[in-house]
């Protein structure tokens, strides 16, 4: 998985590419831990994301919880496969999906 970071002021966009699973989720967690402090608008671009596992969902959930305190978070470019996972797990209810 590759993570493309784009930061403008207090807004951060993370474009993920590949599979977000048990092996790659810690990478995303490390990036978030490092970058998220002053961010008020966090955007995940999932256009090129192929798969997300429960470990990936966990990282998304903790990002969502942190952003609930300091700003907004949204997820864009969600494909069919990822959307089904979000719906099955109920994440579609707690995430802002555009």
């Amino acid at each position: 998985m590759t993570i493309n970071k784009q930061k403008e002021g207090t807004s951060l966009t993370l474009a993920l590419e590949g599979r977000l699973d048990t092996i790659t989720a810690p990478e995303l967690e490390a990036v978030l831990k490092e970058e998220l402090e002053d961010v008020e608008a966090l955007t995940f671009d999932f256009t090129a994301l192929e798969y997300i596992s429960s470990a990936g969902l966990r990282v998304l959930l903790s990002a969502q919880k942190q952003m609930n305190r300091q700003g907004t978070m949204k997820v864009t470019g969600v494909g069919e496969v990822i959307m089904e996972i979000f719906e099955v797990t109920g994440f579609s209810d707690i995430l802002t999906i555009e």
Binding site: L57, L61, K65, E87, G90, F91, D93, I94
Partner: peptide, 9 residues
């Protein structure tokens, strides 16, 4: 229709 995962919120 599903509910959210347990332990998430």
């Amino acid at each position: 229709k599903h509910g959210f995962v347990i332990g998430g919120m």
